[in-house]
Design a protein around this nucleic acid. Sequence first.
DNA 1: CGCCGAGTTGAACTGAATCAAGAAACGTGG
DNA 2: CCACGTTTCTTGATTCAGTTCAACTCGGCG
Lengths: 205, 205
Amino acid sequence: MSVTDKFEKLQAFYKQLMPTITPESWLITQSYLNVRVIKKRNFLIREGTVCNHVSFINSGLLRMYYLKNDKEKILGFCTDNCYISEYKSFLTRKPAQLFIQAIEDTEVIETNYDDLQKLYKEVPEANFLGRMISEQLFIEMSDQSISEINETIEQRYNKLIEEQPWLLQRVPQYMIASYLGITPEALSRVKNRISRKSKKLVPVC
Amino acid sequence: MSVTDKFEKLQAFYKQLMPTITPESWLITQSYLNVRVIKKRNFLIREGTVCNHVSFINSGLLRMYYLKNDKEKILGFCTDNCYISEYKSFLTRKPAQLFIQAIEDTEVIETNYDDLQKLYKEVPEANFLGRMISEQLFIEMSDQSISEINETIEQRYNKLIEEQPWLLQRVPQYMIASYLGITPEALSRVKNRISRKSKKLVPVC
DNA sequence: CGCCGAGTTGAACTGAATCAAGAAACGTGG
DNA sequence: CCACGTTTCTTGATTCAGTTCAACTCGGCG
């Protein structure tokens, strides 16, 4: 796969946000991009370190979580065609509070902090782009933090089945449980309750 | 108070973010700003409506909350010198999921969505500014969503006392409870427990 | 074959919710 | 300035969803 191919998805993404991007600007922008592969179970960022990258996911699957009382609490998952970063740490230059770990082998296109600052100066359009990335990350985070708006765990699990069924295929159940904010045991019982309910509605005689 | 005085705080804020802002750019920017006063108990934004403004708080106090099963869940409070908006709704032009309500009489400087888009075109620096606002709002939201990192309710309440003691003076206790994610009854008991503990440590004989 | 991690199931426990009732604080009008 | 009603806060009794701990199953893999 050539370098150009690796940036293909990102370029499509940029063109969508910024239809007027000039080939020159794109070339300069591209010169600041790096492809990196994160193997399953490895980390994009660890709690306590300063986050130096904003990463666009070409392929793969990552999870964001923090440790609370030695237990993992998962805030969300990210997959193809979206930006991911411990953005607060990236912006403030202070240690990250989150871990971001690959659940599957993952390929990202990274932009380094210093490079991005340079890019903002060199390419005026980059400020627009920076705003877009910022807004994108904001929306992702809002979705995560509002997800608990659903009343019961059962409703939230059902919503997950509807909206992100692929997560159930690709993520072990104990991580889904953590994402929903309960223990694996509790999720097991919730699933059990749901399936018993649907059997009642459609009895197989 | 003259119009210029009303924009004073915001100008200081802009100058800090963007020391190079030209007087001309500031004049254009200013022409797109509106001052609005929201009386106590009135709303900056209601769930279900599209949010058309990003607002800078000159003075006052607001809370952001959503309804879950007819009960209010408070996500956070905002006061002087920070930006507030139902930003996801503002960006996506879809109905807001949150309410933003004044707890005290509040004065804000608003920027309208359409005006801001125009401003981005007219004043190149505005893209930089838009990025700054976006980043600012992102950081505020991260702080809110990570706040549950503290283990017990007691620890979170104690942290609140340390870090935002003014909240306890200005916000009724049932709102603090909602912010901490518990019922007013539960918070009352937590406070009770804490004060009994400190009495044990420093017995008054 | 036996080990290991993931998932399930059961029993006991627990922190917080709920419901209810009373006390304290607040503000509004006379 | 007091009296009243409303709102907020406290306290108690009961209930419940989810945790914890432990035992057991299942499927993959060295």
